[in-house]
Write a protein that binds this DNA or RNA. Structure first.
Lengths: 131, 131
DNA sequence: CGGTATCCCATGCGATACTG
DNA sequence: CAGTATCGCATGGGATACCG
């Protein structure tokens, strides 16, 4: 059973099945596909990365938001966080197998989107000029 | 080339490739995966639907937000809008082939999420209790 | 180095009311 | 029936400063 299929076929409110915004699967999806979630998950695909490296890859992210996002991903079980208690500390993030699977599927979507940007651009132009 | 892979490997700012929030592909992705975007796209998979039917399926949506979302999806070329100029008017929305392809890929992600909700729940419990 | 704390703003969404 | 107009709020995220 998918997650958001047929929202609102439940009784009357808070539709019985999996699409209410509070549904754990929905929350996971929002975290992983948030503005920075995608960047971070993707950045982790090649292998484990340290905090400052992720900060550099996610150009423009603030440290607050970076750590916020990572914390949620860790909580959801998509990412691991490992601390070596040296001074200064050394913290490494990596995809779990769960995160790896999710990111692979998400990657297919992103790749498709990338391949079809011209079509979207065309559609917008047509929509904007004529009406 | 995927869309958000390796953000920030460009020169210095607004990373050359496809992940700046203003990137058309990113915007498309945000529209289609917004709170209601997923519900609407999914609701349209079985076939064309009229406005009031979509409103009923997306339990809790306001008409304002429904028409907002549909308008963006139409503009992005994922959905068509057809008006029969009767009184009262009869407006039908349907997936384009573009929208159909996108939704299929997205569906794979949603299905995966649905299948792994228990794992996520476990992860969160572990995270919350121990730390 | 790897964070937190604080403040602020833009956006998305909800509720309600009105219209061609 | 299929919208638009208006208002108001919660949330995600940016900027800056400080800490173990």
């Amino acid at each position: 059973m998918a997650v958001g299929l047929q929202a609102g076929q439940g009784p009357d409110e808070a539709s019985g099945d999996g699409f209410h915004p509070d549904c754990p699967g929905h929350v996971l999806f929002r975290h992983a596909t948030s503005r920075w979630g995608i960047v971070l998950m993707t950045a982790l695909r090649p292998g484990p990365q340290r905090f400052h490296l992720l900060r550099d890859r996610a150009v423009g992210i603030s440290e607050k938001v970076l750590s916020q996002n990572l914390r949620e991903l860790v909580r959801d079980g998509l990412v691991t966080r490992e601390v070596e208690p040296t001074t200064p500390p050394r913290v490494t993030y990596a995809l779990t197998s769960l995160g790896s699977q999710f990111t692979a599927r998400l990657g297919a979507v992103l790749e498709w989107v990338g391949d079809h940007v011209p079509d979207v651009l065309d559609a917008r132009r047509r929509y904007d000029e004529v009406g």
